[in-house]
Design a protein around this nucleic acid. Structure first.
Length: 478
DNA sequence: AGCACA
């Protein structure tokens, strides 16, 4: 006699107070499950986002009859059960209770375990991961490693809120980055209470890289990627610049023109870099004022990244509360000629060495040295911003930093500039830039064996007056 | 669209 199995048939399933639901949205929430099921009884437990596609769930009723009610109702209903318009298929689970592996009452952590699919381990650097996740807040530490599940990373945020925001925005989504398709899946059900990564462990446990990130992210409440990245659409499909069938209101460009509204807080080059780097390498940035409005040009290496950034960021606010709202369009320029390092502009394509040399030179001579952009060729003008093309666009005319009251054009920046390259983790920096208000306990990835110490991060001039906007929020200012 | 996982 077959004691088990063979009871797969729908009509012979033995009732259970646990129901198995499928064909749910991949990001279905517990709340949505409860909404769907609670008319039939008391729900005592749920488990959603189950299965390889994350589109299954389990719901446990307090009483068996309640589960039977629900199954029989939808068995005879002309209206199928639905979540967000998707028909949900319901049947009795073959188990009698939901086993929740998550410890009761555990709060989401500030450390995410991220599995990145579809890439070779070597394809994704820590810097790339850092850029993607920094859009949501300050990333303190990153460790990457390879396990059976694939290429993975542990990403430590300074607080739970930003970690959750990053998870919600990126979980299960593909993100376009440097022409790679990265599928980010945050397996945050694995609760990391404390992750110890010593240099010894790095070898023993197969950790390929680990880093403490000592630079300070000025943007806590960034909304960069909070808007779904239209998962079905990939901006990375080869060159695919633009088919003739694709209707375009304005010609696409690798340079975005941003105008900012409601400038409650200062938006600096660093802030813009953080926001826009989530979509790809930012090559150059220029900020200027026109008619009292703050505008900026952001240059990417190619159009597809610019398009992704434009789609995702258009209409969003950099800070919670509707502040610094972005309006994006394509610039007519394709290559900006900006001052490499100034108050209002940045050229990340300049090697750091030449930047330093330039700074030294400028310290000797009061005037900027002649400097060639390796891509554009023309000599930089005395203005902070100029374009190589002769096309006058919506961009304002050459912008002169000397008229901005900004004063020093080449600030004697300390060492490196905040950007794409991060100083090696030489000292035991433990950027404890802690946003006020995040009272939840945070965990640490301990990198290296040095003691954890609190250091004072450099204070950028981008601190909004009156304090940073509340971090940890997941603002949706569509 | 067919059963969870540390």
């Amino acid at each position: 006699m077959s004691t088990s199995g063979q009871q797969q048939f729908r009509y012979t399933q033995t009732p259970s107070k646990v129901l198995h639901l499928r064909n749910l949205p991949w990001d279905c929430s517990d709340e949505e499950l409860v909404e769907l099921c609670k008319p039939f009884g008391k729900i005592v437990n749920t488990k959603c986002n189950v299965g390889a596609n994350r589109n299954q769930a389990f719901v446990e009723f307090a009483d068996l009859n309640q589960a039977i009610n629900m199954v029989s109702y939808y068995a005879s209903s002309s209206e199928p059960a639905q979540v967000r318009g998707k028909t949900v298929y319901i049947q009795y689970s073959n188990r009698n209770e939901i086993v929740n592996n998550k410890s009761p009452g555990d709060v989401p952590g500030n450390v995410l375990l991220v599995t990145i699919e579809g890439v070779e381990a070597g394809d994704v650097s820590i810097d790339v991961i850092h850029l993607v996740f920094s859009a949501f807040g300050f990333v303190q530490k990153i460790a990457t490693f390879e396990k059976a599940a694939g290429f993975q990373a542990l990403i430590q945020f300074s607080d739970v809120g930003t970690a959750s925001a990053a998870r919600e925005a990126l979980d299960g989504r593909s993100t376009c980055f440097q022409n790679m398709l990265i599928i980010v899946t945050c397996a945050s059900h694995i609760q990391h209470t404390r992750i110890l990564i010593s240099s010894f462990n790095l070898i023993e446990a197969g950790f390929s890289e680990a880093r403490q990130l000592k630079h300070r992210c000025v943007c806590h409440g960034l909304v960069g990627l909070h808007k779904p990245l239209s998962p079905s659409k990939s901006y990375c499909n080869g060159g695919g610049s633009s088919g003739p069938d694709g209707k375009k209101k304005e010609p696409e460009s690798n340079v975005l023109f941003a105008s900012l509204e409601n400038m409650q807080y200062a938006v600096t080059v660093d802030v813009l870099n953080t926001v826009f780097s989530a979509f790809g390498t930012v090559q150059k940035i220029a900020i200027f004022e026109k008619n009292g409005q703050t505008q900026a040009l952001i240059q990417y290496p190619d159009v597809t990244i610019a398009a992704a950034a434009k789609d995702a960021l258009e209409g969003h606010c950099i800070y919670d509360g509707g502040y610094c709202k972005l309006h994006l369009s394509y610039s007519r320029h394709t290559d900006l000629n900006v001052q490499a390092y100034s108050d209002k502009s940045r050229d990340y394509t300049v090697p750091e060495s030449s930047l330093l040399a330039m700074q030294q030179a400028s310290a000797v001579h009061a005037t900027p040295p002649v400097w060639h952009n390796p891509q554009s060729g023309p000599v930089q003008s005395s203005a902070g911003y100029a374009t190589t093309g002769t096309v006058p666009g919506q961009a304002p005319p050459a912008w002169n930093p000397n008229l901005q009251g900004g004063g020093s054009t080449f600030p004697s920046a300390p060492t490196g500039y905040p950007g794409h390259s991060y100083a090696p983790p030489a000292p035991a920096y433990a950027t404890a830039v802690h946003p006020p208000g995040s009272s939840q306990q945070t965990n640490h990835i301990v990198t290296g064996s040095r003691p954890f110490s609190v250091s004072q991060p450099f204070q950028p001039s981008t601190m909004p007056p009156g304090g940073v906007p509340p971090p940890g929020h997941a603002p949706y200012h569509g």
